[in-house]
Design a protein around this nucleic acid. Structure first.
Lengths: 147, 147
DNA sequence: ACTATGTTGACCATAATGGTCAACATAGTG
DNA sequence: CACTATGTTGACCATTATGGTCAACATAGT
């Protein structure tokens, strides 16, 4: 049970975009270099984000990608949902008819609670939160170097 | 990102053992039949649980497996940990030197929080809790049939 | 026209998942 | 003692997910 690179890379890519703060399209090449992700892989990574209208892309020279919404309006739950599929995606949840003992099944309830706990965490964090945390961290590191 | 059958089957097997409440060894064959799990797969499933001393096995005729501890003392966090490995097992967590930017990485923190949330849920549930929930459910279903 | 980008679908290597098989070890039973 | 019912172990296998690459293409600037 683990988070794959998709969710992690994707989140970093979005944070990269949010931090740069520019409105102009950012070439994937730049993001790939900064985040140390293969460009070829990155192209596939962002496809679901583009499809979902979370980022907008521009082709051609001076093209690239940019956030389609403000960072306050992008929740990690949505990001992870797009890139990893449903968290704790147990077959018997969501498809109640899949399991004949769904009514009686206690363990099923547990996986549901687990999912809810994770959703809660991710729902509560927006891209803007990440940006602020990042800025805070960078600052404290700077201070450390001064001392 | 999903829970595999290992964690789910394993939990059901333990619940099965706890519900039967017998001290005598229960043959894997019986558990496999009740839980609809292939016997051959089940044998492999329980290996880590035996190795960890959560269940005890007896070979030979009239052998089988039984809980090595009381259900109050078995937490789901431990079960899932044994069967699925660490939840949200992101490489960069646990191995702080793996990632050069671990100090600065904000997303890393998020995965840590996610893990904590899940651990919290699983830590709080013991096998005994499952037993009681199950009994409650069975009862309410009975009532439904009476009406 | 040319070049710099993103898009798409095919392809591939590796590992994880879910499962089976066969050989073996061990404990009871007749 | 022979036999049978169990659990143990390691090899094996098919399918899918993961992580990635390649090549052909579409499109927008210069």
């Amino acid at each position: 049970m683990k988070l794959s690179t998709r969710g992690r890379y994707g989140t970093r890519v979005l944070l990269d975009l949010a931090l740069s703060g520019v409105k102009a399209p950012v070439p994937l090449k730049d993001i790939a270099r900064r985040q140390q992700i293969s460009l070829l892989y990155l192209e596939h990574l962002i496809a679901p984000l583009v499809a979902a209208g979370m980022i907008r892309s521009t082709r051609g020279a001076r093209g690239g990608v940019r956030l389609a919404r403000s960072p306050q309006e992008i929740r990690l739950s949505e990001v992870i949902g797009l890139l990893e599929g449903s968290i704790v995606a147990v077959g018997c949840i969501g498809d109640p008819d899949g399991c004949p003992r769904s009514e009686l099944c206690v363990t099923r309830d547990i996986w549901g609670e687990l999912k809810k706990a994770m959703d809660g965490v991710l729902e509560s964090i927006t891209l803007q939160d990440l940006v602020e945390r990042q800025k805070g961290k960078a600052q404290s590191v700077e201070k450390m170097y001064y001392i």
